[in-house]
Design a protein around this nucleic acid. Sequence first.
DNA 1: CACATTTGGTTGCAAATGTAACCATCGTTT
DNA 2: AAACGATGGTTACATTTGCAACCAAATGTG
Lengths: 144, 144
Amino acid sequence: MARLELEQFLPYRLNRISTAVSQEFRSVYGPHHDLTIPEWRVLATLGQFEEMSARAIGRHSAMHKTKVSRAVRALEERRWLKRRQSEEDRREEFLALTPLGRRVYMDIVPRAVAFEERILGTLGSDASPLLAALGRLEEVLKIR
Amino acid sequence: MARLELEQFLPYRLNRISTAVSQEFRSVYGPHHDLTIPEWRVLATLGQFEEMSARAIGRHSAMHKTKVSRAVRALEERRWLKRRQSEEDRREEFLALTPLGRRVYMDIVPRAVAFEERILGTLGSDASPLLAALGRLEEVLKIR
DNA sequence: CACATTTGGTTGCAAATGTAACCATCGTTT
DNA sequence: AAACGATGGTTACATTTGCAACCAAATGTG
């Protein structure tokens, strides 16, 4: 008869690990800044690329355009980013962090880096095989 | 200056991989049976343990009790599981798959196993380091 | 140039989820 | 046994999410 142990099942394990890590990470910046995961992704993308359209942000951070749209509005209301109408194509707008937004970004990045190092650090020599395997998974799943 | 590439950031990668894998998996059983992830988890847990309380299912499958409650009701309405009042403690009820539910379970399990084998298979020799690393991560995150 | 099609982005609506409040029952303390 | 808090489970409410419809501007086609 077919046998399946949920706790050993790859999709289940990945899901649990992923949410636990996200949760942990949020508890790292949460006490200092209140922002959701989609908001953090937009912030991080703009921190990395200066100026970018919403469409491009979505493509780069793997988020649906409605998610991006809402996160952008939230950040805009907090004055963390500003919009600029494109000259060539008046449908699209370019987004960029404000000085305030950049300050928040610069405050979170070191925490993010330290967080990641902490986790990978405790993995010790298992860390790099993990990263390699994740890379392979990304290839297999064609999400790269 | 602080540097962070979102596409390389561990929480981001895990999240993307996890949702992609879940999505893939759902497309495996989706055409045959329509059930959500929480419903699948309850089904899988009961398939594994014959009879179990909702509380125990939640603990075992790492789901909040409201999620379990709703999934159980949905499965019950589909006549895939039945409830039995506990004699000792009239608050709790034991849940078990009906023959119909078990048939569905038995139909999905081989697909699930094959799916997992397909993914791990394409990873080749990277597969077992991945599983080992996931195990370490679970330890580090104390979700085991 | 008129018209259809595509595309960047927003909005409305329905489904999914988490939190807190809740109900009933249990165990414990007095 | 009366009163207490803890526990299994459900329900109500607010928030988040995805999908589809939508708007406006761009591009393509006759």
